[in-house]
Simulated scan of single mutants.
Amino acid sequence: MEPPPLSSLQEEGEEGPTVEDSSVFSAAVVPPRPATHHSLHKYAPLDWSAYFDEERRVAIPDTDNVFNAYTTGSEGPVVFCLHGGGYSGLSFALAASQMKDKARVVAMDLRGHGKSTTNDDLDLSIETLTNDVIAVIRTMYGDLPPAIILVGHSMGGSVAIHVAARKEIRNLHGLVVVDVVEGTAMASLVHMQKILANRAQHFPSIEKAIEWSVKGGPLRNIESARVSIPSTLKYDESRECYTYRTPLEQTEKYWKGWYEGLSDKFLSCPVQKILLLAGTDRLDSWFTICRALTIGQMQGKFQMVVIRHTGHAIQMYLKNLHRTY
């Protein structure tokens, strides 16, 4: 929900689109060029099974809700991962493949995302998302779960904070929030509809969607894009093209609720806490806007780690993210 500027996304050795021609990969604007063998291979989808051991369908009792979850690892605490708006559980694929020797990793598709199906996929209110995660954890582990560390990116970071603040998950040992804080998130919401509208909306193939996400969209890591982007798409039969699985532009009424009051909730969570921030260019404004968190950090209430040379979705860039966890 807070993509980096297009200028930072150009792949090394290639010329990326400018802001003015950022729709160059939209099938509705420019007729697709025949894909070359090189581009088909370079941007071909990667299967989830190269990163996770199992894909589970978690049916919530007495409801029509079935949540998709990717799992890997057999020992250690459960690192329970929640993705950002418009992403999927596979945004944690690279990180999971490196954590699985020391932890059990679970990366679920939230409501309205990936392969999860619910009675109302457009209800992305923070209350509903929080209830969903608690229900999934209880369904998977019962009343006596193993040690759990919640990890949430962007919108998923807000959900993780709300889950921890509810104090309903037994044996919750830690909370890792990835690149989201109340002040900057709230300030960015006025721009989100424009950002969403400026995305390429339709793709003639999955390979083209992956290519756009690397050259003109929110990702620069090709491997992350190849494994995660397909799960964020659906095929539009009427237009004979691929489009986004999650219509974020239709969920605007819930955006404010994701982030309002988040700083106080984060600080009140009675577990060890880490806040991961991408880059250093926003730190001055961050300290100005997020006074409560600044004071909280000075008081030692949480650890803040700044990760340089990544985009907003930090977990999709780093090879050594497991060391932070």
Rank of each mutant, 00 (worst) to 15 (best):
Q193E: 15
P45T: 06
S91D: 04
L318F: 01
Y242R: 05
Y244L: 09
P5Q: 14
M186V: 11
D21H: 13
E14C: 13
S49L: 06
D21S: 13
A93Y: 02
K319A: 11
S49T: 12
E211G: 03
H191D: 10
R220N: 00
N198A: 09
M1H: 12
S97G: 09
G311C: 06
L318Y: 09
L233F: 04
V151C: 08
T139F: 00
G257V: 06
G174R: 06
P247N: 02
P31V: 04
T294L: 11
Y317Q: 06
G85H: 01
V177E: 07
T246C: 11
L321D: 00
G300D: 11
L276E: 05
I195T: 14
C269Q: 08
V227E: 03
C290R: 00
G174Q: 05
L189S: 02
A160H: 00
G112D: 07
R226F: 06
A225M: 01
S228A: 15
S8G: 08
T246G: 00
H322A: 11
R138L: 11
V176N: 06
M99I: 07
I210Y: 07
G217H: 04
A200F: 05
S49H: 12
I149E: 06
G112A: 02
N171P: 08
V227M: 05
W255P: 08
I314R: 04
R199M: 04
T128C: 12
G183E: 01
G174N: 02
G217D: 02
T288E: 15
V106L: 03
K194S: 14
I229C: 02
V227H: 01
A27R: 11
K42I: 01
G300E: 09
N198R: 13
G114N: 07
S231T: 12
V30H: 13
R33C: 10
E168I: 11
S23P: 08
L110I: 08
N65P: 06
M140W: 10
I289A: 12
F266A: 00
S213G: 03
R245T: 03
A278C: 06
L321Q: 07
Y254L: 03
H113I: 06
S8N: 14
V105I: 09
L150Y: 06
D47Q: 09
I148G: 01
K208F: 00
D123H: 08
M155N: 00
M298S: 14
K273A: 05
P45K: 07
E223C: 03
A185D: 04
D21V: 14
G16L: 10
S224W: 14
S125K: 03
D21G: 06
P218E: 01
I161Q: 02
A50K: 15
Y242H: 12
Y254A: 05
Q250I: 08
I289C: 00
I195L: 13
A59F: 11
V214W: 04
V24M: 15
S268R: 10
Q299F: 08
M316S: 10
C241Q: 10
V66S: 02
H41C: 03
I295Q: 12
E54N: 12
T251P: 07
S228K: 07
V151M: 10
P247K: 01
I289V: 14
L318A: 09
P77L: 01
L196T: 08
N119H: 15
M140F: 08
Q10A: 15
A93M: 06
W48E: 01
W48D: 07
H83A: 00
D101G: 00
H322R: 05
P77K: 03
I195K: 13
K102R: 14
A27W: 08
A93D: 03
